[in-house]
């Protein structure tokens, strides 16, 4: 079936079975390979995207469920102020190692900061424990989210 999908501000077409998870539409049909496959059962968070601004594991989200909702992926994360603050923090702290899980980590972190501008360690752990990193960058992810919150807060101060 032919689907019209809103991805990163543009409409894309995909002719796939309705049960096809958004992950595979993004990667195999649209060529947006920044979103990663890790487990296929919502256990690892590598496939996290935003659907209408909320974190969603794209490996268990059939295209049929999405309708006209707006999908955002890592490829345009930097266009938002939360995403760009996170990317800045990730660069400052050199969070990444192999980097495979990081698109998912960043998308989860962005959803967290969008909902909770000054998360505590416990808030961060609660949300980010849905994302696995085998290289063990957890400490730096935690620090990176706090740093991004700081960047956003000081930008907010300037704006005032």
């Amino acid at each position: 079936m032919l689907y019209n999908l809103q991805v990163n501000g543009a409409v894309h077409q995909a002719d796939v079975d309705g049960g096809t998870p958004v992950l595979w539409v993004l990667r195999d049909i649209l060529g947006l390979t920044g979103t990663k496959f890790g487990c296929g059962i919502a256990m690892c968070g590598a496939c996290t995207v935003h659907v209408d601004g909320e974190a969603r594991r794209s490996c268990v989200t059939p295209i049929d469920f999405v309708g006209g909702a707006e999908i955002r992926t890592i490829e345009t994360l930097g266009e938002g102020k939360v995403g760009s603050a996170l990317q800045q923090a990730w660069r400052e702290l050199d969070v990444v190692q192999c980097g495979y899980c990081q698109p998912g980590q960043l998308m989860s972190a962005a959803a967290l900061l969008a909902a909770n501008v000054q998360p505590t360690d416990a808030d961060i752990d609660a949300v980010m424990s849905g994302n696995i990193c085998r290289c063990g960058t957890y400490g730096r992810i935690r620090a990176g989210i706090k740093r991004a919150a700081q960047i956003l807060a000081s930008a907010g101060e300037v704006a005032k």
């Binding site: 256990m43 469920f65 609660a126």
Partner: peptide
């Protein structure tokens, strides 16, 4: 993954139940 209820039972801020749980059951390859 481990998940907390959050204040409303929908998960902590930024990680709602529907991050993983959609409007109906979804078969996986698991």
């Amino acid at each position: 993954p481990p998940i907390d209820a959050g204040s409303e039972g929908h998960g902590p801020l930024g990680l709602n139940c529907n991050t993983c749980h959609g409007s109906e059951n979804v078969s996986t390859i698991g």
